[in-house]
């Protein structure tokens, strides 16, 4: 259990650094996926709500610490909710389906980004406009869908190598 926790902590830190330091410098214009959200979705889909909640909370807290202006806790709230919702919905999805995870990646990317932006807007961040909210949500949803197969395969191998302990959250 401790090894799994350490592995996922290192994974989240690496993903956060890649998102802020690597993707902006790649020669792909407008490349703005939300990798932390994608990881949260993939873990919740593979391991259920309890793992999704934990990873979502940690990923959200990390994202909150790396932004300067939005209230700390906004991303935590959104990613924890995404992890919980996807994990809870897991038994209702066809386990061998290829399209379901892709659709889920698009929906979580778009809805998560829109929810984060709306929350910022409600908390007085007037730099967020509805137009920006819509374009960002669509763009993140699209890029997350493109990267979903890689994330799902990678997370699948990781959770198989480091399964949850006996007190895990298998529904």
């Amino acid at each position: 259990m401790i090894v799994r926790t350490v592995v996922f902590a290192v994974l989240l830190l690496t993903v956060a650094v890649i998102e802020t330091s690597v993707l902006p410098f790649l020669p792909v214009p407008g490349l703005t996926p939300d990798l932390l959200l994608l990881i949260t979705m993939a873990v919740a889909l593979k391991d259920g709500p309890q793992a999704g909640l934990r990873v979502g909370f940690s990923a959200g807290l990390l994202a909150d610490l790396l932004v300067a202006q939005a209230p700390l806790g906004s991303a935590t709230l959104v990613l924890t909710s995404i992890g919980g919702i996807v994990g809870t919905a897991r038994p209702y999805l066809a386990s061998q389906s290829i399209t379901a995870p892709l659709v889920l990646a698009f929906l979580t990317g778009a809805i998560g980004t829109a929810a984060y932006g709306s929350l910022s807007l409600l908390l007085g961040e007037d730099r967020v406009t509805w137009e920006l909210l819509a374009t960002s949500a669509l763009r993140v949803g699209l890029f997350n869908t493109l990267l979903a197969p890689v994330a799902l395969v990678g997370i699948g191998r990781l959770v198989a190598r480091f399964p949850m302990g006996s007190g895990g959250g298998e529904p």
Partner: peptide, 26 residues
Amino acid sequence: YQRRRIRILIGILLFVALLLITLDVR
């Protein structure tokens, strides 16, 4: 038991997130 445990976890984590937002805004 698992469902109850997950509900409690959801409640705690969302409460902490809302607490962080409140503390940061104030």
